[in-house]
């Protein structure tokens, strides 16, 4: 079964066509690299799939449903999205940010403790996010994206700001994610620690699909 199906997807911002008739299918249980030069439309595609922006034309099915339909509303919580910004409140602590998201998505508070341990965030759990380094903020953002144990992760440049050790941990995490039969679509330029990680590469250029290699 396909985790993501997009057909003739188009997204315009005024006169700018960020995505131009992109069609692709991403199977469940795979990790796909979304590659392409700056301005290729990678972030826009991830934002459409994460329901942050509506497509101008075309069809989208994520985890078997149209995420913009009435039925798709409850599925929004099943998408783990980490954008270029970590989507956190700077004046709240790491713990409070995760608690807020857990309340939004109805997640058991035990899951927060497990994620804080898993992402090695214990030293900063009670610190306000605005005082954290970029690397820690990305890790908290990733913990937040994983809060609902989502079957689909949509990650935009997740290795940015991470040191070598944290980068390797993220790669291991994605491998475990796939082993559990889950799916990820990851936009990245030149991930250093990802040898053998990706099952497919979806390449965009100037908003168009330039290739899909499996």
């Amino acid at each position: 079964m396909s985790a993501i199906e997009i057909s003739l997807l188009e997204k315009r911002f005024g006169r700018v066509r960020a995505l131009d008739r992109v069609s692709a299918t991403i199977p469940e249980g795979s990790i796909t690299l979304l590659s392409g030069p700056n301005g290729a439309g990678k972030s826009t595609l991830l934002r459409v799939l994460a329901c942050l922006t509506r497509p101008t034309r075309g069809t989208v099915r994520v985890l078997g449903v149209n995420p913009f339909s009435r039925d798709g509303v409850v599925h929004r919580g099943r998408l783990g999205y980490l954008g270029q910004e970590a989507a956190l409140y700077g004046e709240l602590t790491v713990q409070e940010n995760l608690e807020f998201c857990a309340n939004l998505y109805g997640v058991d508070p035990q899951r927060i403790r497990a994620l804080i341990q898993d992402m090695e965030l214990e030293p900063v759990a009670r610190q306000r996010v605005r005082t954290l380094s970029l690397g820690y903020r990305r890790r908290v953002g990733l913990a937040r994206a994983r809060l609902t144990d989502p079957p689909l992760l949509l990650l935009d440049e997740p290795w940015n700001g991470l040191d070598a050790e944290a980068s390797q941990r993220l790669t291991d995490l994605l491998q475990r994610h796939r082993e559990a039969g889950r799916t990820a679509l990851v936009a990245a330029h030149s991930p250093a620690t990802t040898a053998g990680l990706f099952d497919a590469v979806l390449r965009l250029e100037a908003g168009r699909l330039a290739g899909l290699e499996r």
Binding site: A50, C51, L52, V73, V74, H75, R76, G77, R78, L79, Y81, G83, Q84, E85, A86, A87, L88, Y89, G90, E91, F100, C101, L104, Y105, G106, V129, R137, R144
Partner: peptide, 18 residues
């Protein structure tokens, strides 16, 4: 304002309800 910083508005957009 708090939502504008660090892209936190995405959290509110992705809520699993209306």
């Amino acid at each position: 304002q708090a939502e504008s910083e660090e892209g936190a508005v995405a959290l509110l957009v992705q809520v699993p309800c209306d």
